[in-house]
Write a protein that binds this DNA or RNA. Structure first.
Length: 337
DNA sequence: CGGCTATA
DNA sequence: TATAGCCGG
C-alpha cells in the first residue's frame, strides 16, 4: 500500500499528459503489474486468462501501455522488487490475509449474485506471483524494454536512478519513492482517464510531484518527511493509532517525533527504518538498453502461448516498430542526454 | 487498462 | 469529433 501522505500533497500534484514527460521512466514494476491484475477484469471479477486458466491481464496491460509510452517518447525501465527487508514481514503477512479474505468474499459475492461486490473482492484477491513476474519479464524482453531486479525495494532503486541521472522520473502509485528521495514522481500514468473504483467510475489523470517543492511547501526536510511516514505507518512499521498525516506533520514540526514514538510506540525502534529510507540497498551502476521489439517473440508469447488474437496484436507491433525506425542499432540512454 | 464500435 | 459501453484471454 505504501505510506498515506496524500492529504499533505495538496498543491504539489501537477497534472501532466503523456506528451509532457518524455525521458526515462523508472517504473515500479511490481506496482504496475499489481494495478493491471487488479483492474483488468470482467464485471464479475474474472481476470483475463488463457484456455488453461493462466492469468493474462498483466500481459495485455504491459503491451498496450508500452506502445503508448514509446509513441510519446517515454522510455520505460521496469524495476522489480528484490528480497524485502526483515522488518517488512508484518506488512507482507497482512497483505496475504487481505488477499485470502478477498478470495473467500469473491466466491460468496458470486453466490449472492452481487457483481459489484464480486469485482471489489476479486481486486482484493490480487496476487503478483512468480508466474506473473516470469511472463511479464519475458514479454518485456520480447518488447525490447529493459528491466532489472533491485537488491531490495524497487522504489528505493527507482529513486536512486532518478537521482543519479539514469532515469528522469519515478513512476508508481505509491508515495514511498519520495521518502526514498526520488526528486520527481509521476503517478497515475495511464491513458484512459477513467477507472472503476468499487461500483463507480472515477476520473484519474497523470500527475507529477517534485520532492523539493513538496518539502518546501510543508517547510520540512526529507528526514522529517520520513518521520511523518513512520508516525502514520510505512511498509516497514505499523504506525501509531490515532495519528494521521496532519497530526504527524504537527508533531514533526514541533520536534516531538522521538518523544511521541517513545511514548506511543515504545516497541518500535525508528532508527533502522530511518536508515533504510535514507540509505537503502541499491545498485549504482546499471545501463538500461532499449532494443528493437522482436515481433516473432511477441507473437510467440502472446498468441501461441497465451491465446491472444493476432488481429489485436498486429496493430500494436506496427505502433512499437515506429519509434525505432531510423535508429542505427540499439536505442541507448545516450539518446536522451 | 486500453482498443474498438456504436452512437450523436 | 467526443464519449459511453463492451470486450479482450
Amino acid at each position: 500500500m505504501g505510506v498515506s501522505i496524500r492529504p499533505l500533497l495538496e498543491g504539489c500534484r501537477h497534472p501532466v499528459s503523456f506528451g509532457d514527460i518524455p525521458g526515462v521512466a523508472a517504473i515500479d514494476a511490481n506496482n504496475a503489474l499489481y494495478q493491471f491484475l487488479s483492474i483488468i477484469r470482467q464485471a464479475d471479477g474474472t481476470p483475463l486468462q488463457d484456455t488453461r486458466g493462466r492469468v493474462t491481464s498483466h500481459l495485455s496491460g504491459l503491451l498496450f501501455r508500452t506502445a503508448h509510452f514509446l509513441e510519446n517518447g517515454i522510455m520505460p525501465f521496469y524495476i522489480f522488487d528484490g528480497p524485502p527487508p526483515e522488518f517488512k514481514a508484518k506488512t507482507i503477512a497482512g497483505r496475504r490475509g487481505i488477499r485470502e479474505a478477498g478470495e473467500v468474499e469473491w466466491v460468496k459475492a458470486l453466490e449472492r449474485g452481487d457483481t459489484d461486490a464480486a469485482y471489489r473482492a476479486a481486486m482484493q484477491s490480487t496476487r503478483v506471483d512468480s508466474a506473473i513476474l516470469g511472463s511479464g519479464k519475458r514479454l518485456l524482453d520480447a518488447l525490447g524494454i529493459p528491466w532489472m531486479e533491485a537488491p531490495s525495494e524497487g522504489e528505493a532503486q527507482s529513486a536512486s536512478f532518478v537521482n543519479n541521472g539514469i532515469a528522469t522520473y519515478s513512476v508508481s502509485q505509491d508515495y514511498d519513492s519520495l521518502l526514498f528521495g526520488a526528486t520527481v514522481l509521476v503517478r497515475n500514468l495511464t491513458v484512459s482517464g477513467k477507472r472503476r473504483i468499487g461500483g463507480r467510475q472515477v476520473t484519474i489523470s497523470p500527475e507529477r510531484i517534485y520532492l523539493s517543492e513538496f518539502l518546501e511547501t510543508l517547510g520540512i526536510t526529507r528526514e522529517q518527511l520520513i518521520q511523518i511516514g513512520i508516525l502514520i505507518g510505512t511498509d516497514f512499521n505499523e504506525g501509531i493509532h490515532g495519528i494521521g498525516p496532519k497530526k504527524a506533520l504537527k508533531i514533526v514540526r514541533e520536534g516531538r517525533f522521538s518523544d511521541v514514538m517513545a511514548e506511543k510506540a515504545p516497541d518500535t525502534d525508528p532508527e533502522p527504518i530511518m536508515e533504510f529510507f535514507l540509505f537503502p540497498p541499491v545498485a549504482e551502476a546499471y545501463q538500461p538498453e532499449w532494443k528493437p521489439p522482436d515481433p516473432d517473440q511477441i507473437i510467440g508469447i502472446l498468441c501461441d502461448e497465451y491465446g491472444f488474437s493476432t488481429e489485436r496484436i498486429h496493430p500494436v507491433l506496427e505502433r512499437i516498430a515506429g519509434p525505432q525506425k531510423g535508429q542505427s542499432g540499439q536505442m541507448r540512454l545516450d539518446a536522451w542526454n
